[in-house]
Amino acid sequence: MRGTELLVFVRGETSWGVERAEVRRFGVTGGGITISLRHDRLRADRVVAMLSTPTVRKPGRILRRFWPVSSRGLAVVEGQVVVVIDPLAPPPELALQTEGASDE
């Protein structure tokens, strides 16, 4: 996957990436940011940057063995490893909590 524009954001101690095309809008909730995708909404601590043309490599077997979470792949941005999520099946850790978020 190359040439895809990524939205990089941080949740917990991990940097995450989602294809820019999937992102609809941002919202602010108590102490965090809500990222509305086409099919889902994610929770982020902060948005890092919008990056273009990073190299995303699919996760290997060994990684999948120890981290059985669906993802589009891994990218390295300025020395930081970014996990590019599958917008249709985001990790549970990124799921929005039940409290409502106010969309901008």
Partner: peptide, 22 residues
């Protein structure tokens, strides 16, 4: 960089030679 939900053997992802390294 730790990955949430990973097995205890996996410490996380690191950058090595420009690539993500488990």
């Amino acid at each position: 960089h730790p990955l949430p939900g990973a097995a205890p053997e996996l410490l996380g992802l690191a950058e090595f030679a420009g690539e993500a390294l488990p």
